[in-house]
Design a protein around this nucleic acid. Structure first.
Lengths: 247, 247
DNA sequence: CTATGATTCAAACGTTCGTTTAAATCATAG
DNA sequence: CTATGATTTAAACGAACGTTTGAATCATAG
C-alpha cells in the first residue's frame, strides 16, 4: 500500500522520531524545491530528484503519488505559511485601524514585505523558494495555474478589498491593474533570471549572504512599488474592461 | 543535404516566389511561436508543431537544424526588428536633444512603448509574441538565457546609459535596480499568466480586440513604470552591491 | 518471538521525445 | 527532355520519461 493512499503522513503518530518526521519525504521536498527552481518543472526529472535526494526512484510516487502532486506539495508547505501570515498581518492592521481605511503603504508592506521576509529565513525556503515562486508564476502548465489560483484566491481578495477601501477615489479596475503590475515587478525580481544578470557580472547569492540579498531586494523594491501605485492616473481613450474589475 | 547546412534560406534567390519565400519554414515559425507561448519550450513537442503546421516531422530539423535553433529563430525574427526600432528611436531622441540629457519619460517610452507597439501589430507578432516574450524571460534553460543575453546586450547598455545621464543625482545601481523592476512589471503584464486572471473572469483577447488590449496595457503600464522610476530613494542600511552597478 | 503494516528496492513497463536516414518527389537549369 | 539539387516523405533510431510491480527489508505491536 502506498503512503498517499492512506491520507496520513508516515510516522506521524510516532513520538520519538517526531522531530525528523519522515526523513525521506522531507529530503525529497527540499531537493525538488531546489531543482524545480533551477531547471523548471518539465526540465526536472524524477531521476534527478531521487538521485540527489539519495532515495529510490519509486519513493516520490510512494510518498506523494505523482510528479504533479510533488510540485503541489512543494508549494503547499510554503504557501500555507505565507497565506496565514499575510492574513494575520492584515487582520492586525485592520483591528488596529478600527474600521478606518488603511494607508496603502501598510497594505503593500503587509502583502509584499511578508513574502520577501521568507527570503531571509532559510527555514521558510529562503531565496530558493522565492526564486522558484517567481519563475513558476509564468509557467503555462494548466495544472500549475489552477493550483495557484486556488491557493491565492482568498488572500488576494482580502488585499484587493483593503486597497479599494484605502483608495476610494481610484477606479477599482485601475487598482487591480496596478496590483497586477506590482506582482509582476516582484515576481521578476525574485526570479533572478533576467537578461541583465548575464550581461553584467551578477553574483548569485550564496547561503550566507542570501539573507542580506533578500533585505536589499526588499529595501529597493518597496519604494518602487509604492511609487507605481501612487502614480498619476492614465488618461484613457476609454475602451474595454480588462482583468478583474469586480471584487 | 539539409537547408541549414548551406547557410542560405531556401528559394531565397527566386524572384517570382520571393513574396512567400519558404512557405514551410514560415508556417513552422508561426505555429511554433504560438505553441511555445501556450505550452512553453519543454511543453511543446516537434510533433505538435509539425502537426499543426501540416508539414512533415523532419521539416523542422531540415529547415532550422534543431528544436533549440527553431526557438532562437522564432525570437530572432522579432527581436531584430525590436532592437533596430529601439535604437533608432533613441538615436532620434538624442539627436534632437543635441547633447543634453533626455527626459526619463522619453527614455522609458522609447524602450517600453516600442515593445508594446508590437502587440498592436499582428505583422510584428502581436500579443502572441508579447506573451511568449514575457513567459520566456523567466525560463531557466541555459541556452535560452544565453541567447537572450546576447540579443539584448547592446540595446540594454544604450538605454541604461541614457538613464544614467538623465538622472545624474540617482546612484547608478539604484537606476539599474529600477530598470530591472520595470522590466519585471512589463514582462509579467504581457505574459498574462497571472493568478488574478483565473480568480476573476478574465477575457483572453481575440484577434480583433487584440490591438485594443495592447493599447490599454500600454496606457495603464507607462504611468506605473514612471511612478516607480521616480519614487523616493530607499534609505539603505548599506551593504553588498547587487546587479550591474557598472555601465 | 511472531505477525503486520510501512517503507525501500531493483527491475521493468509502455510512451513520448528529438533526431536521423534513405528513398521519393518537386522545381529548375542546361 | 534530362540532369541536378532542393524539399518532402515515411519509417525507424536510441534515449529518457513517469509510473507500476512484486519482492525484500524495516519497525513496531501483541
Amino acid at each position: 500500500m502506498s503512503a498517499v493512499a492512506k491520507m496520513t503522513t508516515p510516522n506521524s503518530a510516532d513520538a520519538k522520531s517526531a522531530a525528523q518526521s519522515s526523513d525521506t519525504a522531507e529530503r525529497i521536498l527540499d531537493v525538488a524545491e531546489r531543482l524545480f527552481m533551477a531547471h523548471g518543472y518539465d526540465g526536472t526529472s524524477m531521476r534527478m530528484i531521487t538521485g540527489e535526494a539519495q532515495v529510490n526512484l519509486a519513493a516520490v510516487n510512494y510518498h506523494f503519488g505523482s510528479k504533479e502532486d510533488l510540485l503541489r506539495e512543494v508549494f503547499r508547505r510554503r504557501l500555507s505559511w505565507l497565506n496565514a501570515e499575510r492574513l494575520q498581518v492584515l487582520d492586525a492592521l485592520e483591528a488596529e485601524a478600527g474600521g478606518k481605511p488603511l494607508k496603502p503603504s501598510l497594505i503593500v508592506e503587509a502583502f509584499f514585505g511578508t513574502l520577501l521576509k521568507m527570503g531571509e529565513e532559510p527555514a521558510l525556503g529562503g531565496m530558493t523558494f522565492l526564486r522558484l515562486l517567481g519563475r513558476t508564476m509564468t509557467e503555462p502548465a494548466a495544472f500549475i495555474r489552477t493550483f495557484f489560483a486556488g491557493e491565492y484566491a482568498e488572500v488576494m481578495g482580502r488585499f484587493k478589498d483593503a486597497l479599494f477601501r484605502a483608495l476610494p477615489d481610484v477606479p477599482r479596475e485601475e487598482i487591480a491593474w496596478r496590483f497586477h503590475f506590482m506582482l509582476g515587478a516582484m515576481s521578476y525580481a525574485i526570479a533572478e533570471t533576467d537578461v541583465l544578470s548575464l550581461i553584467d557580472g551578477f553574483e548569485v547569492s550564496e547561503s550566507d549572504v542570501e539573507a542580506e540579498a533578500a533585505r536589499q531586494l526588499k529595501a529597493r523594491l518597496m519604494p518602487f512599488l509604492l511609487g507605481g501605485l501612487r502614480a498619476p492616473l492614465p488618461q484613457l481613450p476609454l475602451g474595454m474592461v480588462p482583468p478583474s474589475a469586480a471584487a
